[in-house]
Design a binder for these strands. Structure first.
Lengths: 216, 216
DNA sequence: GTCTATACGGGGATAGAC
DNA sequence: GTCTATCCCCGTATAGAC
C-alpha cells in the first residue's frame, strides 16, 4: 500500500502489533489494576489469540515493563511540555505548579498507581530499568525546587527531597480518590495542593505561619 | 488450667486460633503485599494445614477483611491515644500533627498500603464494611481541621476535605518510600509534612505567602 | 505472525476421616 | 478443630501447524 522503499525504516507488522498490545495493556491495567489483567485478557482486547502474544513478548512481565516504560515516558513528555508552556523565565514555583498539574492529569489518564505493588514483583533486571527511569522523571521536579531555593524563593530549613516526595505522593494518592465526575477538576486539586504547598493552611503573618511546632 | 467457670465468657480455642490467623496474615500481608500471600502460606505460618483455615474463615476474602478491620481499628486507637496525649486543650493543629504522626507510624508498622488495590477486589459487601470503617477513621482528622477552622486558625478558602486527603495521601505514599534504616525518623517525616502543611514552603510575609497562583 | 491445542503449576476451596 | 486428600479452575507459557 505504501511506497516505503527503505526496508530499514519500514515499520514492520510486528512493530505495529507490539505497539497495539502495549496500548491495549495500558488501558486494561489502568481500568482493572495491573494484577487483575491476564495475558488472555490483553490478547482478547487486542483481537489476537493468547499464544500469539509470546511472539512479541517473552513474558507477561515484559509486557508490564513495556507499559511502564511507555507510561513514564509519556508522563515525562507531558510534564516537560507543561513546564515549557509556563515559560522558562517564569517563577520556578509556577512551573512546579504546571508540572504537578500535568503529572496529576497524566496519572489520572494512565492511572499509574497500578504500579504500586506490581513493581516489586518484577524481576530485578526489569525493575531496576524502571526505577532508573523513575528517578529521571523525579529529577524534573527536584530541579524546580532546587531552582526556587537558589533564587531565594523558599523559606529555609526544608528537606526538598522529602518535600518533593510528599507533594508527588499526595497526588499519586489523589489519583485513587479523585472522582472525574465530581465537582472538582484535576486542576482544582493541583491548585489546592499548590496553595497548601506554597503558603500553608495556617493563618498568621510571615514567620508566624512558619509551621514550626511551637506555632501550632 | 484456668478456673473459667463462666462458659459464656470463656475464650474458645477457635477464637484463639482465629486471632492467631489474623495476626499471622497481617504480618504476611505487610511483608509481601496482600496479593502475594496465599492461603497456604498463611496456614503454614500459623502452623496449621491449609484446609483447616476454612473452619475459621469462609474464604480468603474474609481473612482479608478481618485483617483490614483489625488494622483500621488498631490505627484508630493509636491515633486517638496520640491525640489525647497532646492534650484536649492544645491547638487542634498540634493535635493534628500528633494524629498524623501516629497514623504514619502505624501505617509503617502494619504497612497498610497493601490495601491499595486489594480493596477493590473485595466483594461489595465486605468492601463497604471496610469503607465505612475508613470513613470513621478519616473523620478524626477531618474533625481536627474543622475545629482549627472554627477557631480561626486557618487561612480561608481551603477545601478542608481535599486538604485532609492530600495530607493523608502524602503519608500513605510516604510509607512506600520511607526507609526505616535511613537517617530520617518517622517523626521527622511527619514534622516535615506538618511544616509544609502549616506554613508552606514559599518565602514571603503573611498574605504574600498566600500561595495564590499569582504569587508563585 | 498468528492460530490451535495443550502442558504445567498453583491457588482456592471442599469432603470426610479422625 | 484439625488433618489429609483431592477437585477444579485458571493463569502463564510452549509446540507445532498453517
Amino acid at each position: 500500500m505504501q511506497a516505503a522503499p527503505l526496508i530499514e525504516t519500514k515499520i514492520t507488522k510486528a512493530e505495529r502489533t507490539r505497539a497495539r498490545l502495549i496500548e491495549v495493556a495500558t488501558r486494561l491495567f489502568q481500568e482493572h489494576g495491573s494484577d487483575e489483567v491476564t495475558v488472555r485478557a490483553i490478547a482478547a482486547a487486542a483481537k489476537i489469540e493468547a499464544g500469539s502474544i509470546y511472539y512479541h513478548f517473552a513474558s507477561r512481565d515484559e509486557i508490564m515493563r513495556a507499559v511502564l516504560e511507555s507510561g513514564v515516558d509519556g508522563a515525562r513528555q507531558a510534564v516537560m511540555r507543561a513546564i515549557e508552556e509556563a515559560g522558562a523565565d517564569s517563577s520556578p514555583l509556577l512551573r512546579l505548579r504546571a508540572g504537578l498539574g500535568a503529572h496529576f492529569k497524566y496519572t489520572l489518564r494512565e492511572h499509574f498507581s497500578s504500579r504500586l505493588r506490581s513493581i516489586r514483583r518484577l524481576p530485578k533486571r526489569l525493575r531496576e530499568q524502571h526505577m532508573a527511569q523513575e528517578r529521571e522523571y523525579a529529577a524534573i521536579f527536584a530541579g524546580l525546587l532546587r531552582e526556587a531555593e537558589r533564587k531565594g524563593l523558599l523559606r529555609p530549613g526544608f528537606d526538598l527531597s522529602v518535600v518533593r516526595m510528599l507533594a508527588m505522593g499526595a497526588l499519586t494518592w489523589a489519583a485513587e480518590w479523585f472522582d472525574p465526575e465530581g465537582e472538582m477538576s484535576a486542576d482544582d486539586v493541583a491548585d489546592e495542593l499548590m496553595r497548601v504547598l506554597g503558603g500553608g493552611i495556617a493563618r498568621g503573618a510571615g514567620d508566624q505561619a512558619s509551621g514550626d511546632q511551637k506555632r501550632l
